[in-house]
């Protein structure tokens, strides 16, 4: 194949929970380096879609390909090894452990050293140096020894992304990275996302249209488990169906950022 391998292909994926059809024949594909947002109101199936891609859950039908490989039945940890990282809508950190240890756990996840039993983790200078470097880069050095549950919520959301980036992923899934943040914190976290390396393909869920349009070039709109619109930011913004369904209503996801 001449064309570059697609980092992500979702092929007719459905997922139902009893009577609830959370996803219905969703298809989506991403080019290397692309940044795309998944928009949709509460309960649209956005997080469910992420769970299918990351392997936290299995689709009832359809296929998922990562970097050209069919991973539909593959365990989550093996998908991570292929170069996939994700964050969670509800902060998923190791709350009682210090920030440094959170980061070390992220760094050793794809390293064979994680099975080592008799040497202290603190003696792995290479990994430690990388952790220190990342903390420095993300301006969190002074929080190094603080249990992450004692960090501010904004910092926790930042660490949420930091752990995923520590895996050096090729494809990054961000589930509402700015959920629950103040406008100022939202601005800082979206700045952080904007500055992530361009070669990382990013799929992100965002409630706030303005925040999303600022970060991505393409948008997929989910509604009741189905894709109802797809295209560039401008196309989607101008799509009458999207306008009718969302912009007309006082939907939670359109709340404007304070100027």
């Amino acid at each position: 194949m001449a064309a570059a391998v697609k980092p992500l292909q979702v092929d007719g994926v459905s997922r139902s929970f009893g009577g609830v059809q959370a996803l219905y024949r969703v298809s989506l594909s991403m080019e290397p380096g692309e940044r795309r947002a998944v928009l949709g109101p509460n309960g649209a199936g956005k997080s469910t879609l992420f769970h299918q891609i990351s392997g936290m859950d299995r689709p009832t039908e359809g296929r998922i390909l990562l970097f050209g490989q069919d991973v539909t039945g593959m365990a989550a940890h093996r998908r991570a090894a292929l170069g996939l990282a994700r964050t969670f809508q509800i902060t998923h950190l190791f709350p009682k452990l210090p920030l440094l240890k959170n980061l070390l756990l992220a760094l050793q996840g794809l390293d064979g050293m994680k099975f080592s039993m008799l040497r202290p983790l603190s003696s792995y200078k290479r990994v430690l140096a990388r952790a220190e470097g990342l903390l420095d880069e993300w301006q969190l050095v002074d929080k190094r020894d603080v249990a992450v549950q004692d960090l501010s919520y904004g910092e926790q959301r930042q660490v949420e992304i930091l752990l995923a980036m520590a895996q050096e992923p090729k494809l990054l899934l961000l589930d509402e990275p700015t959920a629950g943040l103040s406008p100022a914190e939202t601005a800082s976290v979206s700045g952080l996302i904007r500055d992530l390396p361009r070669e990382v393909t990013i799929l992100l869920i965002e409630h706030d249209m303005d925040v999303a349009f600022d970060l991505v070039e393409n948008v997929t709109v989910l509604h009741s488990g189905k894709i109802i619109a797809e295209g560039s930011c401008d196309e989607v913004r101008g799509n009458p169906l999207v306008q009718e369904i969302y912009l007309g209503k006082k939907a939670g996801w359109t709340q404007a950022v304070e100027p």
Binding site: F115, L121, Y124
Partner: peptide
Amino acid sequence: LLYLIVRSPFGCTLEGIRENEARMRALGYD
């Protein structure tokens, strides 16, 4: 032996699993 294991990467992995299993899976841990 247990003192060493607790401090090793393997011991920290177990700690991580105790704290957050889903995140550990996402980070590439079986």
